[in-house]
Simulated assay, not measured.
Amino acid sequence: MRDPEAIRLVIADDQALVRGALAALLGLEADIDVVAEAGDGAEAVAAVLEHAADVALLDVQMPGVDGLAAAELLRRKAPGCRVLMVTTFGRPGYVRRALQAGAAGFVVKDTPARQLAEAVRKVHAGLRVIDPSLAAESLVAGESPLTVREVDVLRVAADGGTVADIAREVYLSEGTVRNHLSSAMAKTGGRTRGDAARIASENGWLL
């Protein structure tokens, strides 16, 4: 029988196998009760509200409402619920943005089950938990140097779009797009627009 004082946990991940594995592992802990699973951020927020969850385990990249947007929604709608981001993409820029969104912790999915359970306990207790290597990388990477428009054009460039494709997508002239791409390449140190998009993505600047 579950402990009525157990931590009520909602797990959100768009990959059913990953979500199920996390739920199974954390569900083995006597003091953690997985009350719901969700496939995206909107479902996660609804589940937290429905089950009065104490902690939400959110993947960063999910369709529709992603983990960062869900964290911001929970900060407003369920301020008593602590958010722990768990992701495959351990990029330093994501850590900064997760904390700005109100998350209390950030760990990667290959974190051992025992450590993940301990991270859930710590954020529930009001502590902040950040993967040490990501915390160090985040300090080194610094804030994003890109403007909103540079991010817009790099997102399309990351999918292999031409200058004409990017111009149509972001409603800018081709000349303006070239200027933004040139500036973004200079700021990221990328030799090509694809290279600039990759570097920006690795730093979590395109999310």
Rank of each mutant, 00 (worst) to 15 (best):
Glu137Tyr: 09
Ala12Asn: 00
Pro4Ile: 00
Glu72Leu: 10
Leu146Tyr: 11
Asp33Asn: 12
Leu68Thr: 10
Val108Thr: 15
Ala30Lys: 15
Thr88Gln: 13
Glu50Cys: 02
Thr87Met: 08
Ala117Cys: 08
Gly160Trp: 14
Leu99Lys: 03
Ala36Val: 00
Ala78Val: 13
Val120Asn: 11
Phe89Gln: 14
Leu99Gln: 08
Arg76Lys: 13
Ser144Glu: 01
Ala52Trp: 02
Ile130Gly: 05
Arg114Ile: 12
Leu134Lys: 06
Ala136Asp: 13
Asp13Cys: 06
Arg19Leu: 13
Ser138Thr: 10
Val60Lys: 00
Ala44Glu: 02
Ala23Asn: 09
Asp159Tyr: 04
Glu150Gln: 14
Ala44Leu: 11
Glu43Ser: 08
Glu5Met: 08
Trp205Gln: 05
Arg149Asn: 11
Asp131Lys: 08
Val83Phe: 01
Ser173Phe: 08
Ala200His: 01
Met1Ile: 14
Leu57Ser: 01
Ile130Pro: 02
Ala101Ile: 00
Gln115Arg: 15
Met62Pro: 03
Trp205Phe: 12
Ala23Asp: 09
Gly204Asn: 04
Leu26Val: 08
Gly64Ala: 14
Ala47Asp: 10
Leu49Arg: 11
Val65Met: 15
Ser182His: 11
Ala117Met: 15
Asp159Asn: 08
Asp152Thr: 06
Pro112Cys: 00
Ala125Gly: 09
Gly189Arg: 07
Ala42Cys: 02
Ala44Cys: 14
Asn203Cys: 00
Leu181His: 01
Arg82Thr: 11
Asp110Leu: 00
Ala196Arg: 10
Arg178Phe: 01
Ala12Asp: 04
Leu73Glu: 14
Leu207Pro: 00
Ala78Arg: 07
Leu58Thr: 12
Arg121Val: 14
Thr147Ser: 15
Ala56Gln: 00
Val108Pro: 01
Gln15His: 15
Val123Phe: 08
Ala103Tyr: 06
Asp131Asn: 06
Ala125Leu: 03
Gly67Ala: 13
Pro132Ile: 07
Leu206Lys: 11
Ala164Asp: 10
Cys81Asn: 04
Thr111Ile: 14
Ala53His: 00
Pro4Gln: 00
Pro132Trp: 01
Glu174Tyr: 02
Leu172Met: 15
Gly20Cys: 02
Asp33Ala: 09
Ala104Leu: 11
Leu207Ala: 13
Gly93His: 12
